[in-house]
Computed example of a mutant assay.
Amino acid sequence: MATTQLTASSISTRSLSSFEGFRTSAIQFPRKHAAIGIHTQRSFPSLVVKAATVVAPKHTTVKPLGDRVLVKIKDAEEKTQGGILLPSTAQSKPQGGEVVSVGEGKSIGKNKVEISVKAGAQVVYSKYAGTEVEFNGTKHLILKDDDIIGILETDEVKDLKPLNDRVLIKVADAEEKTAGGLLLTEATKEKPSIGTVIAVGPGSVDEEGNRKPLSITSGNTVLYSKYAGNDFKGKDGSNYIALRASDVMAILS
């Protein structure tokens, strides 16, 4: 993510209002030099700069290059499923958006590999992928094609169409009791690492630029790495995880 550094000489009292809403503790000024643009010493609330690159107003389009994709970020949820309003600090970071434009693809060996999504597609991406940019008053994300988990055209996670070497798994329910019959709280339940494959991607691209189909198929019960992938909650309350096929350790039968 792009970052911006501020110095004391670059801030005036007239520009301080533009930092309203920023988190605290990222910028600190020594008390001896706390006077910025005024004649008396005073302390300011600590400021932090959004980890986003703001594109100048004269630029109205951003064209991604290579295997990069420009995605318009979906707004964060402002309410819980029960209708409770969430403060900005409690809103989950969006993981989805609409593809605005794509790069020309990349070359592998003698072959050209095109981007796996088209403009207009609704996609889900890795939570901390890409670089956030803001232009035309809207937040966007520039990220690698490989950071896109899949295409999701509905509000149902189970409808996710994984891309490349990704696999969508419905997670098995966690055990609610120990072997001795004691009830487990949510905090002590073991995170499941077993689930049923719901959908698989077309496979990764080999050194010659050809797709290599995955050895995992829908319906397989699999054992996967415990802390891999991206977790999602379905509308029916079921848990899902999207991860790379290489994070699947075994097929169970």
Rank of each mutant, 00 (worst) to 15 (best):
T178S: 14
K74I: 00
A52W: 01
G180Y: 13
R23N: 08
S15E: 11
D247C: 11
Q5E: 15
N210A: 09
D146I: 00
G181P: 08
D75G: 10
V171Y: 10
P45V: 10
I27W: 14
L16A: 07
S107C: 08
E114A: 14
S43M: 07
N111W: 09
M1K: 09
Q95T: 11
I169A: 04
Y240K: 14
Q91H: 01
A2I: 08
D146A: 05
K112R: 11
G181E: 07
T53G: 05
H59R: 12
V200F: 09
G96R: 14
T80A: 01
R31S: 06
F135P: 03
N210M: 07
E132P: 01
L214I: 03
E114W: 03
G201N: 05
Y128E: 09
L252M: 15
S193A: 09
A187L: 04
G150I: 03
S204C: 01
R31N: 03
I194F: 03
T4Q: 13
S15V: 05
K191L: 02
G219S: 00
K93Y: 11
G219N: 00
T178H: 10
S253G: 15
S25N: 14
H33I: 11
K158D: 13
E134W: 00
D173A: 13
G195M: 07
N230K: 10
G195E: 11
E176Y: 02
A35N: 13
T53K: 09
Y224T: 00
K191A: 03
T80S: 11
V99A: 02
V49L: 04
T131Y: 12
G229R: 07
E98I: 11
G229I: 01
S126H: 00
H33A: 13
P87G: 06
K226V: 12
S88G: 03
P162Y: 08
S43L: 08
N111Q: 14
G97V: 06
S107K: 15
K226S: 15
F19S: 01
K118I: 04
V197I: 12
H140W: 04
V197G: 04
A90T: 04
Q81Y: 12
K74Q: 13
E114K: 15
G229V: 02
